[in-house]
Design a protein around this nucleic acid. Structure first.
Length: 227
DNA sequence: GTTGGGGGGCACTTTACCTCA
DNA sequence: GATGAGGTAAAGTGCCCCCCA
């Protein structure tokens, strides 16, 4: 699959989920000037030097030694990656010159860096989907339980006792508050704007309706709870 | 409009080195 | 200190897509 530069720039998609904030970007911002040569080249960290052994390790030479980038080189590459995830040939050449690397090495580094970035993103997405799945599973379980309990109640329509008159309320007067998932009565208290919480439309709604309607426990909740 | 070559990116893999038990 | 397993990053390979002549 080939990815155009425009889609590369979309690599860092973000996912927002309630209660789940993604980790901060992996590269803390720096005031590094990318056009400056590294102060310390850190060449002591090189297993194999960069440009010098250009044609080594090919056709019958000694086994290739692994290049280890110095901290400064890595820092510059990361900084450059933060600015653009792909390089045009001139940028690649300039960066290679600056880092005393071959352009091919810069190119490889960017390729691997993009792969790591994508892998990280995929892992984050996987984590997010796992959490989402767990949340949906839990919600599904609750709803199924509720359905079963409502089915058990199907003998008669669910009734909710008015907190004021202790009379059963018509279902048409019940509305669900989307934010707190409570069932409220509306349009009854004409003299007051207060909305009275009557029953809880949470996973325990059906259980509440079936077992606690009209009981002192619910009535005390009815009078105290507010949306 | 079709075709072939070149360049660049990506996925997958190999390899060398590092860390840690 | 030697050693093997596992992890990480640089590099190799093959394929695909895009552009251009």
């Amino acid at each position: 699959m080939a990815v155009s530069p425009s889609s590369i720039s979309r690599l860092e998609l973000t996912i927002s989920m309630p209660g789940f904030s993604p980790p901060p970007p992996p590269f803390p911002s720096s005031d590094l000037d990318i056009n400056q040569l590294p102060s310390g080249t850190g060449e002591e960290e090189w297993i194999t030097a960069g440009v010098e052994d250009e044609e080594e390790s090919t056709n019958g030479g000694p086994p290739r030694k692994k290049l280890r980038l110095s901290k400064e080189q890595s820092r510059l590459l990361e900084e450059s990656f933060r600015q653009h995830h792909t390089l045009n040939p001139r940028q690649k050449e300039a960066l290679a010159l600056q880092l005393k690397l071959r352009p091919r090495q810069v190119e490889v580094w960017f390729q691997n860096r993009r792969a790591r970035s994508k892998l990280k993103q995929t892992e984050m997405e996987c984590e997010y989907l796992k959490r989402w799945f767990g949340s949906l599973t839990e919600q599904n379980r609750r709803l199924q339980r509720e359905v079963e309990e409502l089915r058990a109640l199907k003998v008669g329509p669910p009734t909710v006792m008015s907190p004021h008159s202790c009379e059963p309320l018509p279902a048409s007067t019940l509305t669900m508050c989307p934010s707190c998932e409570r069932v409220t009565t509306t349009g009854l208290d004409k003299g007051s704007t207060k909305t009275t919480t009557t029953a809880v439309a949470t996973p325990t709604t059906a259980a509440t309706l079936s077992s606690k309607v009209g009981t002192p426990a619910l009535q005390s909740r009815q009078s105290s709870a507010a949306c």
